Amino acid sequence: MKYCAFLRGVNVKGTNMKMADVCQVFKEAGMLDVGSVLASGNIVFSSDKKAEDLKEILEKAMSNHFSYEAFLFIKSQEETEIFWNSIPFEKNDDLHIYGFVGNPGVESVLMGAFEAASKTENEKADIVNDLFYWQVPKGNTLDSSFGKVLGKKSLKDQFTSRNINTFEKILKKMN
């Protein structure tokens, strides 16, 4: 089965790694057809194992190789297609749209945080098929009230986010 591993916290805040090295760790952990998409920690691969087993195997391999506490989220090609096909917002050159990959139930936590946050014009969030999506004006991602919530250490093992354009690139690599 084809999967994508979405790594959290890669190539930000001092956790730097080359994607070629990450791919090698995946290969050494027994993954097949390994390739990366962008430098933000998106690894496409094949395996006959279940996603929950892969998460454990790959987090351990990454943690050991790179000497950091690895967090990653494994989604099948079918699940990644659902992310892409469920986007609730219209594309707009002035806005970023993010999809959040994470543990079951994290979408409710994120929506609660979003509802409590102050918002800029055109900033929206929605949950579709248990997936959380956030729209924010370009240039406001890190400065927005909700954007600051996303960096909380208490949430680091719960989710990671990607611009929806990344999902499109991942799906092209999977096909």
Rank of each mutant, 00 (worst) to 15 (best):
V25T: 11
S118I: 09
G41S: 07
H65E: 11
S36P: 06
M19Q: 12
D21V: 05
S145H: 06
G9V: 04
Q158K: 15
E69G: 04
D53G: 11
G112W: 05
N103L: 10
A113T: 08
I43Q: 10
M17Y: 05
G30A: 09
F71P: 05
M17S: 10
E78A: 15
W84G: 10
F159L: 14
E69I: 00
D48R: 14
G112S: 14
D33K: 04
W134P: 01
F159P: 10
Y98T: 00
K91S: 06
I127K: 08
K75H: 02
A39Y: 04
M19Y: 14
R162S: 13
S63Q: 01
F45G: 09
D143A: 02
E121L: 15
F73S: 08
N11W: 04
E28I: 00
M174K: 00
S36K: 01
G35H: 07
D93C: 00
N129H: 09
E115F: 11
G35D: 09
V136S: 03
S63G: 00
F26D: 06
E78Y: 12
N92M: 01
L7K: 02
S86P: 05
V34W: 06
T120P: 13
N140Y: 03
M174R: 01
K50I: 07
S46C: 13
S46R: 09
L38D: 02
V25I: 12
D126V: 11
G139M: 04
A29G: 11
S76W: 00
G9L: 07
S108P: 00
K91I: 03
N92Q: 04
K2F: 03
E56W: 02
F132D: 00
M1N: 03
G105C: 09
K27P: 02
N85R: 12
K152Y: 09
S161V: 09
K91P: 00
G139E: 06
D157W: 06
Y68N: 02
N85P: 05
E90R: 11
T15F: 05
G41F: 04
D48M: 11
L110D: 08
D130W: 04
D33I: 03
T15H: 13
E107G: 03
V37D: 08
L110V: 13
D126G: 12
G102N: 10
N122H: 15
A5H: 02
T80P: 02
L171Q: 14
K119A: 14
F66N: 06
E115P: 10
S67G: 04
L131A: 02
G102H: 07
A29R: 09
E107S: 13
D48I: 12
I127D: 03
I43P: 03
N92T: 01
D21M: 07
Y3T: 03
L150D: 06
M17A: 14
A51K: 13
L38C: 01
F89L: 08
N16H: 12
A116D: 13
L142F: 06
I74Q: 07
E28Y: 02
I74S: 06
L131E: 01
M62E: 02
K124Y: 13
L7F: 04
V25E: 05
G41L: 08
C4P: 00
Y133D: 04
S86Y: 08
F26E: 07
D33T: 05
V101L: 08
W134Y: 07
Q135F: 00
A117P: 01
T80C: 12
E107M: 09
K75Q: 07
N16F: 13
S108D: 14
A113L: 15
K91A: 07
